[in-house]
Structure formats: C-alpha cells, structure tokens
Design a protein around this nucleic acid. Structure first.
Length: 827
RNA sequence: GCGAAAGUGGCGGAAUAGGAAGACGCGCUGGACUUAGGAUCCAGUAGGGUUAACCUGUAGGGGUUCAAGUCCCCUCUUUCGCACCA
C-alpha cells in the first residue's frame, strides 16, 4: 500500500496558503532570515535543476522557520530576454502573452511542489511596475557619471541577433546557443563597473562564499600592479603611454607595439594616405574577428610604422611597430616591447629581426643573446641598465618606478582585466533605455514624471538584423523634453542582467510605486542571508549584483556593502553523466514524478542523492528508494497510531526498560544531534536524511510492539514522534499529515526544532578498539569512567593483543579517550 | 600554457579536529509470505583467504606519525575557470 500522497499534498498546500505562513510581515518581532534562490526565466516548465535548487532553499527556509526566524523566501520571474522573443516568434504569438502564460504554468508547478514561497511579493521583470525602477536606476547611474556611450567593437551572435558581453562569450561561442561569435561595431551604452573594480576584489564582508567563486571573480577582475610610462615621440609631437608590470626592463625596450586601433596609428594613417601597405594591414587586422585575433596561438604579425619614440631613461631611439597581438582595451592599449624578457615580444622580434637587448641576467646560468631560444622572464640581476646595474630586478622595479615618477615620466598604478559592462542590446524584449536624442540638446534623460518608458506592444517581432523597435516610429518619435523639438528615443534595450542586479532589494518592498523600495524595509530584510543558484553566474550576475548593491549603498538607499552574505552554488542534475537537455533527450519531467510518487519523494531524492553543492546523478531506482523511505515512515506511525498517541501521554521511566529500548532512545537522541549538526551547521542534507533513515531502521526493528510494557511503549512512542519534525524540511507534506494524525494542532513550522538531551547519549559501556602497531587487534567493552591505567591493563590482557605483542618491547601506549588504545611495539 | 577542485565497493555517496574505511540509499545474492508482484519482511554484500586467524585495499609512487582517505612531496587522470592582459 502506498501512502496517499496525492491526497495530502494538495491538502497541505491549501492550508499553508490559507494561513499565509510564508508571507512574513514587515518588521516582525522575531529575527529575520532571507533565503533567496536565483529567479527563473519563465520557460513554462520547471526542470529537475530548478526543483533541486528550490528544494535546497525550501529546506533551509523551513528549518529557519522551525528555529523561530521570520523567514522571507520570495520568488519571481526573470522574464525579459531573447528567449522570450524567440519563443514568441516560434509560436506566432507575442512575448507578453507567452511570458504571462508561461508564468501561470510555472505557478502551478511551484504550487504542486509545495515550496514555501511568498507569492505576495512576486515580481516579474517584464512588467512596467518593475522595469520602471530599472530605468530609474539607469538615470541615477547616469547622473553619477557611471553610464557612458562609446562606439566599440562588440561580440555579436548572428544566431541570437544580439550583442554579447565578454562574460557571455564561452570559448568563442555564444553562451546560450553556442554559435561562433563575430565582431560588429556599434554605439553602445556602458556601465562603469570598473569604478568599483577595487572594491569588488574585497570579499571581507561576505560570510560564506565558495572559494571557487571568489577566485573566479578575482581572476575575472584581474588586477595587476604596474607602472604607466610615457615614451615621447622622436618628433616631439606627442607621446605614447604604456602600462607595464616590468618597469625593471625599461632599459631593454627595443620596440613599441601598438594595435591598429590605437589613436596615434589612426592619426598617422590620415596624415599619410600614401602609406598603402600600413593602411591595408590595419584594416585587415581590425576586421578580423576578436576571438581568433586574441587567441593565444594566432601568429604574430606586424609592420614598422616608420616612426620612432624615445626611451625616457636613456634617450634611445625606439622603432614603433603596429601589431596584431596588442589589444586596445587593456592598460593603455600600447606595449613597451622587451624581447629579451617577454615571450611574445621575443617571438615577434626574432620574426622581424628587431634587436634584442639583455637587461636582466640569470644569476644561476649566464644568458647569451646569440644562443637564447626563449625570453628570460624570471627575476635576476640588472645589467645594461646604467645606474641600476647590479641591483636585484625585484628591487629595481620599485627603484625605476620611483625614479620615473620623480622625473615626471611615469606613475605607479594598477590595471584591471575587467572591462566596463556593455548593457545595450538591439532587441525588443527588454527594458527600454530612458534616453532621448535631441538634435539641439543632444542626449537627454527621460524626466522622472515620464517614466516608465513603456515598451510598445505593436512591434514586428522577427528574425531581422534590425532592432524590432525601429519598426515603431510612433513610439520612437517624440518631442524633446527640454526644448520640444522633434527627437528620437533610444531604441536599444538593456541587458537582462541589469534587471537581475537589484531584484533582491525589490522583494523587500515589491509594490512600492513611489520608488524602487523603501530603504527601511530593504535595510531590515537585506542582506540576503542565504543565496542559492548555479555556478554559471559566478562572473556575470553575481558580479553585477555586487556592483549595483554597492552603487545603491553609495546613493544612500542601502547600508550594506554586499547583497548576499552566504552563497551556495548547487550542483546540476545529470542523467547518464550529462546535463539534462532537450537536445540530448535525457530530460526527466518533474510533473511525471510528482504524479506517480509525489513532490515529497522527488524532493527527498534530490536532497539525498548528494550534498547540495555537488551534481546529482538522476536515478529512477533512487526515486523508488526515496518513495520507500517515506512509505516506511508512514507505516510506522499510521499502523501504530493509537499506541503512539497513548504512549506519548506517559512520561517513561527510563530506568525500567530493556537494553533494546535503551538503545532505541539512544538512537533517537543521537539522530537528532546529528540531524541538527548536518542541517544547521553544515547544510549537508544527504547525511541528515541518512541519519533519519538509520533511526527509522532502528524503530522498525522493534517487533511485537503490542507486547511491550506500557512503559516501553511510551519509549517507543517517543522514538516515533520525532519523525515528522525531522523530515519536515525535506518532505513537508507527509510530515504535516503525520504530525496532525498524532494529534498536534500546531503546524510544524511553529513547533520548534527537535531537541535532544546529552543525558541519553551517555552509554553504560564504551567499546575501545585496541591497535598494535596501527593494526586492529581487539576490542573491549568497558565502563565509561574507567581509569587510563585500568584501561591499558585490560587492553594488554586481550588474547589476540598478547599474541601480536609476543616478545617484543612495548615502546608506547597511547589512549584516545572514548575511542582506542594504540600500542606501539618493536625490538 | 596558467590557476583551482576532485579521484573511495557494481552505482550514488559517508567518514565533520589525524583515531574501527565503506554510514545511508540503490543494485545484486539467498530466503519468508504469496492471487507471481515495480509490494512487504529477514539475512548477506570491498577483494583475497585453508572462511578463521590473517592479508590487501581510498588513482599510482614516496614521506611524516603509535596511527593517513584525511598532512607533505612527486606522477597520472578527470572536471571547471582563464587564456597574447603587457
């Protein structure tokens, strides 16, 4: 007989909803706890990965509720974005309609899974009441000088017809469709995230983030310390500024390497149009796509510009080359090339016969320019560097930098790999950028009273290269808010990562129509105590959200430096070792599992199969195992209901019970202790569930329950009634049902965490393991408060121990209290 | 190439502070019940072994220690991240 999951699951979902237990009031008297899962894109279907994510957060939320916290666990939809647009095209519909339909469908699925979500606070990023505040935020950023417009080459996915941020390019392909990425030049809007680069490197304000994510973000920001140095042009008209991390090698510079995009190169091309060869070279390199140009194995090419600059330290004449291996948007976009001490410069100099000058000598093995096959990039002793000769290069780094600073030729500084965040998207289904272009006034912000800039409905959505909003002149043709002249709206929309960079704050005050949120409410609920989501957002969403949080702090809206105190990156759900995906045809539909075995079974399986931060391998047998487990609990309580209810009313006399029953009560307290450690301290639900299973086995091992004495039945009852609270975080429906059957009127979230008592964890006898030279040779059962001397004596008397000691000398006896006696012997 | 993490039975995994390796679940083997079933219950389940003593076992090799899955060094494999960043 299967337990009636299909009856009880909807029943409890309804009761929870009617009682509103997942909708905390603002400013409650209890301490707050904010649990947040990354909100989903409304595809219309929750997949197993979502279920796994939300099963983890719901377990945490319910645990915290049992522990007396006012828990906020909101949910919403990240509903702007290209997939909605494509979905609508495929289904010959409008994104607004399909998105709302999908949200409704997902609501039903969320409901059938029984997650404790506060739907009163639901947000959807494509609704004007949400995106209006994204536009407002854009304006605030603009006013603070953190938004700018720049013409630049952008990663372009021809399949998705969209610009991609660097973070969205994966191995030269689009992160979503994996088509090759090409280059396209566009005027784009940028958020100046680099203004916060230094602070984003500081993780001291988060409590518990995976080291892996912190490392990824630090690498992504990629700070290097170095020096800016000015090399004046020979003709004195200008100078080239370089950034270098190796100021110790300045005397070894033999050429200057510039990319074709460098402003000086562009200027020279205009000045001497007769230099056809250089012009052609530059055009060819610029038009090459960024990915293959920046790949490490691309062959280095270059051309001498015919011009020279001067080394500020010794006045040496230096050739200026235009090359394909220097990138414009890092450092100053110019490199002082030191072939003797840089692998790339060495390769280039050898290819073009440029001189190589040794300025750092290897202290171990003298370097010889004629026979060198690689650059020497290690530190060493300074040579050919006039006043710095003989110094260690690491010291010379500082000395030369200081010298350059004093002379006004340089400046000690840092460079970051992090680029500013391009937020422009030439797509329809996104938040309109609140900008108007006026022929008289130039760039004009849409006034606050005209917000939101509503996204029009009547667009031609289709796979064109044009931005669909360009098909709506009645929308983009407007009067300038300043001078009234005919003007034009910005037709680009914002990257959807803008929407998700502040949503955690909106949940704290989701219906506010005066401002993004009330700072008092946000400061009460924030920061998010526990955030849960996929590792794939390590360098995108999580970095952007930290940036915007710091910005909102600087505006005075928030008083926190970090949005997410603890981060859990949950593993993926795999099938046959691969991520579930439609294209692989290995998708398991959660609805099918819910219909056949119930939501509790699915949740228990996903939580039991592996720790929350590791991948879960799907297993049909594993589902059966979880289902059996819940059925066994059901039977234990249901079949002994009268006995347990009767027994629960008696205070047992623990001195009058058999060893078997004493062991059962020990099992119960030990289980609660382990469960509390696993759930509350470690968040390792797989082992917590294993502990509950173990206790269940111990309870089911008591046969002929009806023949026990009244006193022992009371003990048995105690051991059984802990199951509902123990499984509540993982399988809340069956837990509530059994709890009610046992005669409890309160719901489980208000019944407190199960408690244990150390008194029952004390045993009459302890087993000591005896090792001889590290090998297990015997066991003894002794009184817990036995003296060490007595214990050693008993250990040495064990027959098997004696045999292994034989005639050898006892060198040492180590006693680990409560565990073992280790005897070291030898000749 | 650089950086990080991981490698434990047939499988998922456990061992939390260096102290009995393999908890718990799945699968499998045998049995009970039986209207033969994807139900339930009982027993067994790392490998070897004369079946009990013992030996061997946490990717491989070395080391520290009374004691190593755990700490140190080297090698291999896998996964992930970055990749001409000056």
């Amino acid at each position: 007989m299967e337990y009636p999951f299909s009856k009880i699951e909807p029943k409890w979902q309804k009761i929870w909803r009617e009682k509103g237990i997942f909708h905390p009031e603002d400013f409650p008297s209890q301490p707050k706890y904010y649990v947040l899962s990354m909100f989903p894109y409304p595809s219309g279907i929750l997949h197993c990965g979502h279920v796994s994510n939300y099963a983890i957060s719901d377990a945490i939320a319910r645990l915290k509720m049992m522990d007396g916290y006012a828990v906020l666990q909101p949910m919403g939809f990240d509903s702007f974005g290209m997939p909605a647009e494509n979905y609508a095209i495929e289904h010959n519909s409008h994104p607004r309609i399909t998105t709302e339909e999908n949200i409704q469908a997902m609501h039903r699925q969320f409901d059938s899974l029984g997650f404790g979500l506060d739907w009163e606070r639901e947000i959807s990023t494509c609704r004007p009441d949400y995106y209006v505040w994204g536009q407002y935020l854009f304006k605030k950023l603009y006013e603070k000088g953190l938004v700018y417009r720049k013409k630049s080459w952008q990663n372009w996915c021809a399949n998705c017809q969209t610009i991609l941020a660097n973070e969205q390019v994966v191995n030269g392909t689009c992160w979503r469709c994996h088509n090759p990425v090409t280059q396209k030049e566009q005027e784009q809007w940028f958020f100046r995230i680099t203004a916060y680069a230094e602070e984003l490197l500081d993780f001291s304000k988060v409590i518990d983030w995976p080291e892996r994510v912190i490392t990824m973000q630090k690498n992504w920001i990629g700070k290097s310390e170095g020096t800016l140095i000015d090399f004046p042009l020979e003709d004195g008209t200008d100078s080239i500024q370089v950034f270098t991390t190796r100021p110790d090698t300045v005397y070894g510079v033999t050429f200057m390497a510039l990319p074709p995009e460098h402003p000086l190169v562009q200027k020279w091309l205009k000045e001497e149009p007769e230099n056809r060869a250089l012009k052609e070279f530059c055009e060819r390199v610029i038009n090459e796509d960024k990915i293959s140009r920046e790949a490490v194995d691309t062959i280095k090419e270059g051309m001498f510009s015919g011009r020279y600059c001067l080394n500020p330290l010794n006045g040496e004449k230096i050739q200026i080359w235009v090359t394909n291996y220097v990138v414009m948007d890092y450092g100053t976009g110019a490199v002082m090339a030191v072939p003797a001490h840089d692998e790339r410069d060495f390769e280039f100099a050898r290819k073009y016969g440029i001189p190589i000058k040794l300025v750092i000598q290897n202290p171990e093995r003298t370097l010889n320019l004629e026979t060198m096959e690689n650059a020497y990039i290690e530190p060493g002793i300074m040579v050919n560097s006039a006043p710095f000769d003989g110094m260690y290069s690491e010291e010379a780094k500082i000395a030369i930098s200081k010298f350059l600073e004093e002379k006004g030729y340089g400046k000690i500084t840092s460079a970051y790999r992090l680029r500013d965040w391009c937020i422009s998207r030439q797509r329809y289904w996104g938040n309109p950028i609140p900008i108007i272009y006026c022929p008289n006034c130039g760039i004009v912000l849409v006034p606050d009273e005209d917000l939101p800039v509503l996204l029009p409905d009547n667009v031609q959505v289709g796979k064109t290269t044009r931005n669909p909003l360009l098909s709506v002149p009645e929308w983009y043709n407007v009067k300038c808010p300043q001078c009234g002249a005919d003007a034009r709206r910005e037709t680009d929309t914002m990257d959807t990562f803008v929407d998700s960079s502040w949503y955690y704050a909106r949940y704290t005050d989701p219906h506010n129509d005066k401002r993004p949120f009330d700072p008092d409410k946000a400061n009460f609920w924030l920061p998010v105590d526990q955030y849960i989501g996929g590792i794939e957002h390590a360098c995108m969403h999580l970095l952007y959200a930290r940036f915007i949080c710091k910005f909102m702090r600087d505006l005075g809206w928030l008083k926190y430096d970090e949005p997410f105190l603890r981060l859990l990156t949950q593993g993926m759900v795999l099938k046959d070792g691969a991520k579930m995906s439609k294209s692989k045809g290995n998708v398991v539909d959660p609805n099918y599992i819910i219909d056949r075995y119930g939501a509790d079974t699915l949740r228990v399986f996903l939580l039991f199969a592996s720790p929350p931060d590791k991948d879960v391998e799907w297993s049909d047998e594993g589902i059966m195992g979880a289902f059996r487990f819940l059925n066994r609990i059901w039977r234990l309580i249901d079949e002994n209901l009268d006995l347990i209810q009767k027994g629960a009313k008696i205070e047992p006399d623990y001195t009058q019970i058999s060893t078997k029953m004493r062991n059962l009560i020990y099992s119960m307290h030990k289980t609660i202790k382990k469960w509390r450690e696993d759930c509350l301290d470690r968040m390792q639900f797989n082992t917590a569930i294993a502990a509950v299973m173990e206790h269940l086995n111990n309870c089911l091992a008591i046969k002929e329950v009806n023949e026990l004495s009244d006193n022992e039945q009371a003990v048995f009852a105690q051991a059984c009634i802990v199951f509902p609270p123990l499984i509540y975080p993982f399988a809340p429906h069956i837990a509530e049902e059994l709890w009610q059957k046992l005669g409890n009127e309160k719901l489980l979230h208000e019944s407190g965490l199960p408690e244990y008592s150390e008194r029952f964890l004390e045993l009459d006898k302890i087993t000591y393991v005896i090792q001889v030279n590290g090998k297990l040779r015997g066991k003894i059962e002794v009184d817990p408060d036995i003296s060490e001397e007595e214990l050693k004596k008993l250990a040495l008397e064990v027959e098997n121990v004696k045999r292994h000691i034989s005639n050898q000398e006892i060198k040492k006896i180590i006693v680990i209290p409560g565990k073992m006696v280790s005897i070291a012997v030898g000749k």
